[in-house]
């Protein structure tokens, strides 16, 4: 089984930066993919499926981050995660909307 890798450079758009709720959304979305997902900020590399890891980046608005996925669904993972960051992690209208979305 060959594994592919994909990367995308993203810039944190939302004014609040990658605080806890966006970190959750990111980790939750990344976890839906089989691929390993990592976030790279300058020389720091963290697990993109871990809320705790993502928060350690302290990524404020305007921070450039590289999303890297390795695995069979790497391209799909990077595409979806790139869109999530670009969307600026909108605040859910309903309390439980955050745990749904994405097919």
């Amino acid at each position: 089984m060959s594994s592919t890798s994909a990367t995308a450079k993203v810039i944190i758009q939302n004014p609040q930066g990658l605080h806890m709720r966006p970190a959750y959304l990111f980790a939750e979305t990344a976890s839906k993919f089989e691929s390993e997902v990592e976030l790279i900020k300058e020389d720091v590399r963290v697990n993109g499926k871990s809320v705790l890891d993502i928060l350690t980046l302290g990524a404020a608005q305007g921070t450039e981050i590289l999303v890297e996925a390795v695995g069979n669904d790497a391209h799909a993972a990077v595409e979806v995660l790139e869109q999530l960051v670009a969307s600026g992690f909108p605040t859910p209208e309903k309390p439980d909307e955050a745990s749904e979305s994405q097919a």
Binding site: L18, H19, M20, G58
Partner: peptide, 10 residues
């Protein structure tokens, strides 16, 4: 103080 909040979380 978004950035201070983020730094505390970090």
């Amino acid at each position: 103080q978004q950035s201070e909040h983020l730094k505390a979380l970090e």
